[in-house]
């Protein structure tokens, strides 16, 4: 049982939520980007979370059997392009990126969805920060033992 492992768990949550906020910001900033490096419109990006597992399978089984706690936080498992949501097509023949029929392909970014996700990420970040403060207060209190 490592004293600072609960700090690491809280920090992993903070890192993951901050990274998610970065990606959401990127989506919002590129909401009107019709041309990226490969010439197509920007595609909305999503992050996926997975449970962090820094231990080897052997030490995990061993620790579970000697009743040590094995959880070690969260990590980003990947950033994917959202190909499920349809791209926005707007009729604007004067636009330089318009196709032969006069339609411009705008990114599939929905500002309302992004803002909702941003608030969600922000609240989760705060929850992790609260948990970190609780862990820190407890560690400091533990040092007062026997004084």
């Amino acid at each position: 049982m490592n004293i600072f492992s609960s700090f690491d768990i809280n920090a992993s949550g903070l890192t993951a939520q901050r990274y998610r906020m970065d990606i959401i910001s990127e989506n919002v900033a590129n909401a009107n980007t019709t041309r990226t490096d490969d010439g197509t419109a920007y595609v909305r990006k999503v992050v996926t979370f997975t449970e962090k597992d820094s231990q080897t399978p052997f030490s995990k089984v061993l620790n579970e059997n000697i009743d040590n706690y094995t959880g070690s936080g969260v990590k980003i498992s990947g950033v994917y392009e959202d190909t499920q949501t349809a791209m926005n097509k707007v009729y604007d023949p004067s636009h330089p990126d318009a196709d032969a029929d006069g339609y411009v392909t705008y990114p599939n970014v929905n500002i309302v969805t992004e803002m909702t996700n941003l608030i969600d990420a922000s609240r989760s970040y705060e929850a992790n920060a609260t948990a970190f403060n609780a862990s820190k207060a407890m560690a400091v209190k533990g040092l007062e033992m026997g004084k």
Partner: peptide, 22 residues
């Protein structure tokens, strides 16, 4: 009891960190 409480803090921290993990 204090050991158990510390362990629970770790478990709750992990739950909070994984609030968005499918």
């Amino acid at each position: 009891a204090a050991d158990a409480s510390w362990l629970r803090n770790q478990a709750i921290s992990n739950n909070i960190a994984n609030v968005d993990t499918p």
